[in-house]
């Protein structure tokens, strides 16, 4: 075919258990395609993806992989299936044939983690965007998944909703030891992860700790990505001869460094 587009191009990557990885990249960089490869929604044209020793090409493992790798999508309205919160969280559990009694326990457990217990009987269309995304997260983790892939979960939310979602994601990573793969184009959110991967035209363009990646201002701008304000300020001041680490990512660190000079 002439119009073939390579969405992903020879990616080699290992994600360790318990990690919190963020994937950044502009539209069309292959982020969502990458996400859909994680749980057999897409299969690679060439190459292999292994989830806990299971190859995503192995048809007999598809359901096991999907159970292990939970997914949350961008539009909160288009991933909630049932007419109440509890029924929606139970949806995945019903699919894998969990017994009713155990299901009730799991639903309550998941609701508690995402802090939505009081909305158990609510109708989804009456919730805020942040709450809807928390329900979606609960639906994924109720399956006791060990990996959670979030594809721009906050792109359609307001600042309050964003904070709610990122707080829950961090909690899942720290307290429940769930491996997080977080796709975003918001640098403040990516800064919360342990490792950032910048994609460009389906290839890995940059990878490293947030403070390593976000200080590559020139490359980030080439990739048409944002640079956190604080990092840009730190770099500029550094160039002007003020001894501030160009790896400064957080407002608090900047304040502390500046206190020595002002």
């Amino acid at each position: 075919m002439k119009d073939q587009i390579k969405a992903l191009d020879s990616i080699n990557l290992e994600i360790k258990k318990g990690d919190f990885i963020s994937i950044i990249g502009s539209n069309g960089s292959g982020k969502s395609t990458f996400a859909k490869h994680m749980n057999c929604l897409l299969l690679p044209t060439t190459g292999d993806i292994w989830v806990d020793e299971m190859n995503t090409r192995d048809k007999s493992k598809t359901w096991e992989i999907r159970r292990k790798v939970g997914m949350v999508f961008q539009n909160p309205d288009n991933q909630i299936i049932a007419t109440t919160v509890e029924d929606d969280i139970a949806f995945g559990l019903e699919n894998i044939g969990i017994k009713t009694k155990l299901m009730r326990e799991r639903v309550d457990w998941a609701l508690e983690i995402v802090e939505m217990e009081e909305y158990k009987k609510s109708e989804p269309h009456l919730l805020s965007g942040g709450q809807k995304q928390r329900v979606a997260i609960a639906g994924a983790i109720a399956l006791h998944s060990s990996y959670l892939v979030l594809d721009e979960p906050t792109a359609m939310l307001d600042p309050r909703g964003r904070k709610e979602v990122i707080a829950i994601v961090k909690k899942l990573n720290l307290e429940k030891n769930i491996t997080i793969i977080y796709i975003t184009h918001l640098m403040e959110e990516a800064a919360e992860s342990n490792r950032v991967i910048a994609l460009d035209k389906g290839k890995i363009a940059l990878t490293g700790k947030p403070e390593e990646v976000f200080t590559q201002i020139e490359i980030l701008k080439q990739l048409r990505l944002d640079v956190p304000q604080i990092t840009e300020l730190a770099l500029r001041l550094n160039k002007r001869g003020i001894d501030i680490s160009p790896h400064t990512l957080k407002v608090e660190d900047m304040v502390e460094s500046l206190c020595l000079y002002i």
């Binding site: 403040e188 956190p228 304000q229 407002v251 500046l258």
Partner: peptide, 15 residues
């Protein structure tokens, strides 16, 4: 904005 927040935090420290 981050930079505004930074200035306010400096001010709170008496700067």
């Amino acid at each position: 904005p981050q930079v505004t927040e930074c200035m306010h935090k400096l001010k709170a420290k008496g700067k």
